[in-house]
Amino acid sequence: MQIAADELAEVIVRLRRAQGQIGGVIQMIESGRDCKDIVTQLAAASRALDRAGFKIVATGLQQCLLDDDGSGQAAVDREQMEKLFLALA
């Protein structure tokens, strides 16, 4: 399953945000910041990564359900989509 890059622009934004948050976590650890602040920032980065993953799966699912050849068959079967969702669980 291929997803067009323009459909994933929002995912790129989320991943860049997570990248910045992870960099912030590293700096916080190195500067000896409070554990509570570090965990809060780390949780935010984790949520950003989760949301990016869910967006990719949802976009892929939408594309797969729109069959290109008119056969009525989805390009990816249900089992494959379940595996993608479970990978993020």
Rank of each mutant, 00 (worst) to 15 (best):
C64W: 04
D37W: 06
D50Q: 14
T40F: 06
I26G: 03
D50L: 15
A5E: 14
R16A: 13
L49T: 03
A4W: 02
K55L: 15
V11S: 00
R78V: 12
A45C: 15
E79Y: 02
R47I: 10
Q63W: 01
D68T: 07
A74K: 06
K36M: 11
I22L: 15
Q19P: 10
K36T: 07
G20C: 10
L15Q: 05
I56L: 07
G20S: 08
R17Q: 11
Q41C: 05
E82H: 06
Q80Y: 02
A4Y: 03
L49N: 03
G32W: 03
D69V: 13
L42I: 06
R51F: 04
R47M: 10
A89N: 03
D6H: 11
R51N: 09
A48P: 12
T59I: 12
R14T: 05
R78A: 14
K83V: 07
M81E: 07
A52R: 01
S46A: 15
I38K: 01
I12R: 08
Q27P: 06
A44Y: 02
I3M: 12
D37R: 07
L15V: 10
G23E: 13
Q62L: 15
Q27D: 12
M1L: 13
Q62K: 13
T40S: 09
G23C: 09
M81W: 03
I3E: 08
I22M: 10
I38E: 00
E82Q: 12
D68S: 10
G70R: 07
R14Y: 05
L65H: 05
G32I: 07
S71F: 04
I29C: 11
L88I: 15
I38G: 03
D6T: 11
A89Y: 01
K55V: 09
G53A: 01
A89Q: 08
Q21Y: 02
Q41L: 12
D6W: 04
A9P: 04
I26Y: 00
M1S: 10
F54R: 07
D50R: 12
V13G: 00
L8K: 00
A87H: 07
L42S: 09
A9K: 13
A52H: 01
D6M: 14
E82P: 07
V39A: 10
C64Y: 01
Q63T: 09
R16W: 03
A5N: 09
F54I: 09
A48Q: 11
D69F: 10
S46G: 12
D68W: 00
D68M: 08
A74W: 01
A43H: 11
E7L: 15
K55N: 07
G72A: 10
M28A: 01
Q2V: 11
F85K: 06
A45Q: 11
R51D: 14
L61W: 00
C35E: 12
R51S: 14
L66C: 09
V13N: 00
A75N: 07
C35W: 03
D34L: 09
V11W: 00
S31R: 15
M81T: 06
T40L: 11
A75D: 08
D69P: 15
G24I: 12
D69Y: 09
Q2F: 07
A43Y: 02
R33L: 07
R78H: 06
R33Q: 13
I3K: 08
A18T: 04
A87Y: 05
I26K: 05
M1Q: 05
A87D: 08
A89W: 02
R33N: 04
V11A: 04
L84Y: 00
V39W: 02
T59F: 04
L88D: 08
G24K: 09
R17L: 15
A48K: 05
V25R: 00
D50A: 13
